[in-house]
Amino acid sequence: MAFVQYSMQERFGAEFPNVQLIGQQFEAGDPALNFVPKIDQNYTFDRDALADVLNYLQECWNGGTSEAQMLIGPTGSGKTSLIHQVCARLGAPVMDVTGHGRLEIPQLLYSKIAVDGTTMTLDGPLTAALAKGMVFLLNEIDLIEPETLTGLNDVLEYQRVVIEDDGRLVRAERGFAFIATCNTAGGGDDTGMYAGTKVQNIAFRDRFRKSLVDYRDEASELAVLQRLFPSIDQKLAEKFVKVANLVRNAFKDGSTGMDVTLSLRTLIRWVKLTSANSGQQAKGRSPVHYALDRALAFGTSPGTYEALHQMVSQEFGVGPTIANPSIG
């Protein structure tokens, strides 16, 4: 692997400054290439969040830092996809782990397997990221027990870890970066929206730079829909986006009972399913309502299900069942 210079305009788009960024390049066949995310050509970046991530990674790869980066935002706002798309354009491999309440430090550091009657110790995802100079992405850190995360303090501070099982000292190679995502910033959740999240130790939280990743603005999402669905009518696309924002605002409000949100990924799925099910109109069903069920609404609480369809009816001007729809 070699560190190289990439043009930001060439990698991220002509609308960005013509500056040079540190990136990575691997020889063909290098196993690390399996961990480099694929570029999504339709992805659009939030400039502030992109700047935060780029600044952090450039510092990590140009001398190192004892700090980590935390991305905070609501469910479905694109925290993980932001890291993947930045690293995809910089050629950087990403080691992903999703946090949960039963996650323990040894699981991140090593595992043991039986081979031909003997026991072999394998590097865990964090150890592998340190040793191979990869971006380590720990998602949903506010679901992890606080005493577990406190055990990572020395890793963040000194960029190294001692493997208890065999006594090895593993130091971070150039390219290593520690990034975490969460909904609550480790401060707990009083709204009830994020069940299972926990208040994290202040010493652990203090080791992170913070960046907010919220839902995209309306213009950005419209641009995405128009790129993915070139034949979509402008006013129709606006209605899809308006419903998405109604759902998100109700979810973030916390007092409406809305127990789901509508991510950009779900928005795209909804538009795609609406087009694919246009034939439902001939059966007296609204394709946009029919598709919403399959994109999001099925499985929600009765109150949320009704509220979702009311929002669609409000914006599209058509109910779930129709007689002679002009749209739908």
Rank of each mutant, 00 (worst) to 15 (best):
F3R: 07
R11D: 11
R11F: 04
N18H: 00
V19T: 11
V19W: 00
Q24V: 10
A28N: 15
A32I: 02
N42R: 14
N42A: 14
T44K: 11
D52C: 11
Y56I: 01
L57Q: 04
G64N: 08
T65K: 08
E67N: 15
I72F: 08
I72H: 09
C87Y: 08
A92L: 08
P93W: 06
I113H: 15
I113N: 15
D116I: 04
T118P: 10
T119Y: 12
M120C: 10
M120R: 13
P125A: 06
T127A: 13
A128R: 06
A129I: 00
K132L: 05
M134W: 11
T148I: 01
L156C: 04
E157Y: 06
Q159I: 00
R174H: 04
I179F: 06
N183D: 10
G186M: 04
A203N: 13
R205G: 10
F208R: 03
V213S: 05
D214M: 07
D214R: 04
R216D: 14
E221D: 15
R227P: 14
I232V: 15
D233G: 15
D233F: 07
Q234A: 14
K235V: 12
E238I: 00
E238H: 06
V243Y: 05
T256N: 09
T256H: 07
T256Q: 06
V260G: 05
R265E: 09
R265P: 11
R265I: 03
T266Q: 14
L267E: 03
L267F: 07
L273W: 09
Q280R: 08
S286A: 02
S286I: 00
D293P: 04
T300Y: 05
T304S: 12
Y305H: 12
E306Q: 12
Q310R: 12
S313K: 07
T321I: 09
N324D: 14
N324C: 10
S326P: 14
